[in-house]
Design a protein around this nucleic acid. Structure first.
Lengths: 146, 146
DNA sequence: TTAGCTTGTATAGGAAGCTATTCAATGATA
DNA sequence: TATCATTGAATAGCTTCCTATACAAGCTAA
């Protein structure tokens, strides 16, 4: 059969992703944040008042995943859900003061993780790495859609 | 603040890893397998009778994660836990006939996912990608250890 | 206007990861 | 030998992801 996990892109990607998550967890736990909340916060820091639907579109996560994470974020005092002015089914998600205050330290933490991870890579190689990942993401999305 | 998630290695890696997992899920579900079982099966296909401890060492997963996944694999008729001949605390994990028979189709499925994901990349770029990932893994492991 | 489709969220339930804790078997030492 | 530390595994409890389903609000069309 000859299947060497350490030569398998999928296996190595999974391993790398767990390590990225662990490194970020360590740095944002002091802020009272967790990894799953991060993408949602990033989005809301740049564009507040989005609906759940809009978050789903922007983050490539399932609606149920977002809904559950939002519930934990509400519990943790990071967001508030307010009724949508036009659509009675929808809510608009707003950040609390607490969450707004975390933008700078949290993005610093994320930058620090990237810096540690990519420390040995020159800028050109970093860009190339990102380009390759975008290509792979595109290929896998096409595969999953088909 | 200026934090563009699509230029953040950590964010993109997480996204890519979820897509790899989804693509593999789709292909191994017909075999009755799930993604978390895959690394353990890979290890046992090449080296049966390992203890939980040995699996933990070889797979860089936490002991509790392995223990829980083994329980589900036992439930699914993929492995058997047998008493360790010398050490009363330990067990040796053996594959069932069913699990042994899945080696070829399951590794084929994993290879197919890698092939789809890396389709647009020439062999040299694939090797470079793996090397970069190993470098990043090393850097993050060092960071987490320290 | 009302019946029926569509859409935005919520919820149930499960997998895979984690930390922290417990427990029994082993090993080491006074 | 009796005690105490170490070690292998199990368990509790959490987050983050998923699919499938339910439900109420909105929309459409007869």
């Amino acid at each position: 059969m000859s299947f060497d996990k350490d030569q398998s892109a999928g296996y190595v990607v999974n391993h790398m992703a767990r390590l990225f998550a662990a490194a970020l967890t360590e740095r944002i736990r002091p802020l009272g944040l967790s990894t799953g909340q991060f993408p949602i916060l990033l989005q809301l820091w740049s564009e507040e008042g989005l609906t759940q639907k809009q978050l789903v579109e922007r983050l490539d996560l399932e609606q149920a995943t977002i809904a559950n994470t939002l519930t934990r974020m509400e519990r943790d005092g990071l967001i508030e859900r307010k009724a949508h002015p036009q659509d009675g089914r929808a809510q608009c998600i707003y950040l609390t003061k607490k969450a707004r205050a975390l933008e700078a330290p949290a993005t610093e933490a994320a930058k620090a993780v990237n810096e540690v991870a990519l420390a040995d890579l020159p800028p050109v190689a970093r860009k190339a790495f990102l380009r390759v990942m975008e290509q792979i993401i595109g290929a896998l999305q096409k595969d999953l859609a088909g």
